[in-house]
Design a binder for these strands. Structure first.
Lengths: 326, 326
DNA sequence: CTGTTAGCGCCTTCAT
DNA sequence: ATGAAGGCGCTAACAG
């Protein structure tokens, strides 16, 4: 691999001149510049990014910490982020913590050292740990959870979105609703609970039972009996996977959706529209969330003005899985 | 951020000694070593990975080039790869070429310079370009396509897998089968066509019509009319998304699956089991593919013995979307 | 406008 | 066993 001294020798100039030319510094004699460019081309020279990183103090790379690369929402966030970063000439280092919450912190700090900043998706990390972690990570952008002013936040507005879903069900005449809670300690679950509290306050005749569940298909299926026992006429699932699992288990039991019971999901993952019946859900703009997270990071990196808090409003998508209460 | 000289000063030793201690070099007085460790701990010192990378000539990072982060198969490959690499203490840089085949080459070369190697998923890159690209990328591992000895290959055996699917249909009495071809120029499509040729040779009474299609849900839906017109009693879709689109469109037309027509997919994406009817398909072990790709790269990086070609056999999954010919 | 020089932070011979 | 010194490849003052 050709190095800068090789190019300098070939062009008969000093290495500083080569550096200047390669970096577009205009204070170079056009003739020399051309000679340098020719030499660089012949040698297929490109500056070693590592050496540049060391001297410049920036790597043109950011780290994205994600709890689970198998989760469609994080996949979409990563996709949106990666493409937006690429458009700005940045690279992305991924760190999948594989749901190991205790690893998350170490991972974030480790990746931070080889990058210019980190975008943190850590919904299950407790707030106290997060608060001490963030300053250590700066510049850092937090996705989908609060970060008391120590970092810009880009989040979907789960509270409003779930609120709309509740209103939708209430408008259909449902008065007994079950909520399948996902990870109880996650930030987005807290937002959802707030939405339920809002709804209860607004509608005294509305009963919302909170049933435990997980975050995946099987959890939804496993909750079917509890849902039936609760006497609810409508279910708000933690996410689409849970809703789909529930849908499947209910169907197996001969319970008709939405005739007997309405089911709503959350996220609008790609397959939500293809279930039968298609799933009513709140479309979280995950890829856009990723793009916005990048935008926030880019602003941090370039010292540009930036919004400290970006809230993206999920869109309520009404499909066939919800209907009037029986 | 503390640097090695800070630790040296605090411990009252030279920076070489600190370096030795941090790297576990045993030729250091235990007393000094302990003093160094204490100093490092107090200062929260960790060697700057960038500086190490520059001097050591290795970054502990590999690049993964992927054509589309939105594709479930590549997502799974990335997940398996990322976790396997993390287990060996390596980081992963992702490069999503967003299906821009011409960008793929530049991207691969660019990311290669900041990493120790690249794992290349480039199913649509033409073979000639690939052949000149690979030497430039070494060490490099190629996923899901041939690489004439210039790099280790880790691939799913599409040919055998599709062959099994055909046999399955043939065994069910189907004699007129339609194949919904995906991207004609992709490597895996070539493997699939080879499987069809095998089947035709083995069963003279078997007719297989090749119908053009894309690779996504909508392509499958759009192919419904052509499928009906073809008179086929069974369809092999390029992948599960195409199969699901077809399934949906057929259902809309009142055509029953599998009573009127059988449909088989490919890949076994997470939702294939949840369609109605559930999809018969070939389960490509994508995450395992990623893990194997990492293993191959790790071998390359450590100079270990390695297998030049790993073929992973997809498992045929029989579900409800295929049945006896009407 | 160009070349020389001093680092960026670290590892590693080479002496001692 | 330890320290001094050179260099990884490049950029950015500083002279000239």
């Amino acid at each position: 691999m050709a190095k800068i001294t090789d190019v300098a020798a070939r062009a008969g100039v000093s290495l500083s001149t080569v550096s200047r030319v390669m970096n577009g510094n205009p204070t170079v004699d056009p003739v020399l510049a051309e000679r340098v460019r020719a030499a660089a081309l012949e040698l297929g020279y490109t500056a070693n990014p590592l050496a540049r990183s060391l001297v410049l103090g920036r790597t043109q790379t950011v780290a994205v910490v994600i709890p689970d690369l198998g989760n469609p929402t994080f996949q979409a966030i990563l996709r949106g982020l990666s493409r937006a970063a690429a458009d700005d000439g940045y690279h992305v280092l991924i760190a999948d913590s594989a749901e190991q919450v205790d690893e998350e912190r170490v991972l974030a700090v480790a990746t931070r050292r080889r990058t210019d900043g980190v975008i943190l998706c850590a919904p299950r990390l407790d707030q106290a740990s997060l608060d001490v972690l963030l300053p250590e990570l700066a510049p850092v952008v937090v996705v989908n959870r609060a970060a008391q002013d120590s970092a810009p936040v880009v989040a979907a507005d789960y509270r409003t979105a779930l609120g709309e879903l509740v209103e939708h069900l209430y408008g259909l005449g449902h008065r007994r609703v079950a909520y399948l809670a996902g990870v109880p300690r996650s930030a987005s679950n807290a937002a959802r609970l707030a939405a339920l509290a809002d709804a209860r306050a607004a509608h005294p005749d509305l009963e919302i039972a909170e049933l435990p569940s997980g975050v995946d298909f099987d959890s939804g299926a496993a909750a079917a009996d509890a849902v039936c026992a609760s006497g609810a006429t409508a279910v708000l699932a933690f996410n689409d996977l849970v809703a789909m699992g529930l849908l499947s288990a209910l169907t197996d039991r001969g319970i008709r959706v939405p005739a007997d019971i309405s089911v709503a999901g959350f996220d609008d993952i790609p397959f939500a529209r293809y279930t039968s019946p298609p799933l009513t859900t709140a479309a979280v703009p995950a890829a856009e969330l990723g793009a916005q997270a990048w935008a926030a990071m880019h602003a941090l990196l370039t010292g540009a003005e930036s919004v400290p808090f970006v809230a993206l409003r999920p869109q309520t998508i009404l499909r066939g899985s919800t209907a009037a209460a029986p």
